[in-house]
């Protein structure tokens, strides 16, 4: 019996170690020998632990469910844009998360700053952050530090030093493509560092391929048509561009995500909300964005839908 207990003890210690490596939390009762040892190790918070201390819910239930409760704090997360012209969408979504993290940390601890590390290549091809634009988006510009490293080596060093300094609520690391010098080893190192200091590291991979990394999840972010601006009376203003919308697909996550997500960022409320469908499918037909008077639609063309009903008798020809 004693031998059995010792073996169990060893087993638990091993499980605990594995759980720690995987970043999961052990249920409190599994540490006592002989209780429900067969209970699977879920990433559920301990009973005494506030769930919000490890996760930051986005407020979109389906999305939070895939993330097992919300945005994990103090982890490496990867956001990938397939093309460089999607840089706006990738940046926007990641900045939205930064705003949430920023608000959360400003409340919890006094860490108001966000560090944005943007490789020079990306800055040249996709542009620099704009103070006024960030403000419109919900992030006060005086809470941002922007680092412009020359190469990936400098960028990685900056990311690690930034995490180490514990002065930031979030660190954005923006890279172009899949640099050879930023492989699994480096990403593992950064993710361990992020976990150790409890600061989230958001990796933006602009125009990059899918690549194995030690990020806790990877999202592919694409553009999505925005819904029209909402008017106070509940209707929408036709042909206008409302809040930014994003098309998200999980490429790597602990729980499988079956469908893509369409989220919208509300800069005034500073929160994400779900879009039911991309706006293109919601009834608005695409039309040229010409504000001038449209010509009347020409009739009698073969592509026009035929009038309903049957032709019983043709008009007289003469």
């Amino acid at each position: 019996m004693a031998g059995n207990a010792v073996a169990r003890e060893a087993l638990f210690a091993l499980r605990e170690t594995i759980a720690r490596i995987e970043g999961k939390v052990l249920p409190a009762d599994t540490t006592c020998v002989g209780s429900k040892a067969e209970k699977p190790f879920a990433a559920r918070p301990k009973p005494g632990e506030e769930p919000s201390s490890r996760f930051l819910p986005l407020g979109v239930p389906a999305f939070d469910a895939v993330l097992q409760g919300g945005l994990p704090l103090g982890e490496l997360m990867e956001f990938r844009g397939a093309e460089l012209r999607d840089a706006g969408a990738v940046t926007g979504f990641a900045l939205g998360l930064c705003v949430l993290l920023h608000r959360h940390f400003a409340k919890v601890t006094g860490r108001p700053l966000v560090l944005w590390i943007g490789e020079k290549v990306v800055a040249m091809e996709a542009g620099l952050p704009v103070v006024q634009g960030l403000q419109d988006f919900g992030l006060p510009a005086n809470h941002l530090l922007y680092a412009a490293p020359k190469g990936i080596d400098e960028a990685l060093w900056l990311a690690e030093a930034g995490l180490e300094s514990r002065a930031f609520s979030a660190v954005l690391l923006e890279v172009r493509g899949n640099p050879a010098r930023f492989g699994l080893t480096e990403s593992r190192r950064l993710s361990l560092k992020a976990r150790a200091v409890g600061c989230s590291l958001l990796l933006l991979r602009q125009a990059g391929e899918e690549e194995a990394s030690s990020a806790v999840f990877r999202l592919r972010i694409g553009p999505a048509p925005a819904v029209s601006r909402r008017l106070p009376d509940g209707s929408t203003l036709p042909w206008s561009l409302g809040n930014p919308a994003f098309h998200l697909a999980f490429e790597k996550s602990r729980l499988p995500a079956l469908a893509d997500f369409f989220l919208e960022w509300n800069p005034h409320d500073r929160q994400f909300s779900a879009l039911p469908l991309p706006a293109a499918a919601s009834g608005e037909k695409p039309q040229p964005a010409h504000s001038g008077a449209l010509l009347s639609a020409s009739g009698d063309r073969p592509h026009r839908p035929q009038p309903l009903g049957h032709v019983v008798a043709l008009h007289r020809a003469s």
Binding site: V130, V131, L144, L145, Y146, A148, P149, K150, W157, A161
Partner: peptide
């Protein structure tokens, strides 16, 4: 640290 390693122009703060 950043200024000593990469120069003062590496780490920037935006100003309106």
């Amino acid at each position: 640290q950043v200024a000593a390693r990469f120069g003062a122009d590496c780490l920037l703060a935006p100003v309106g």
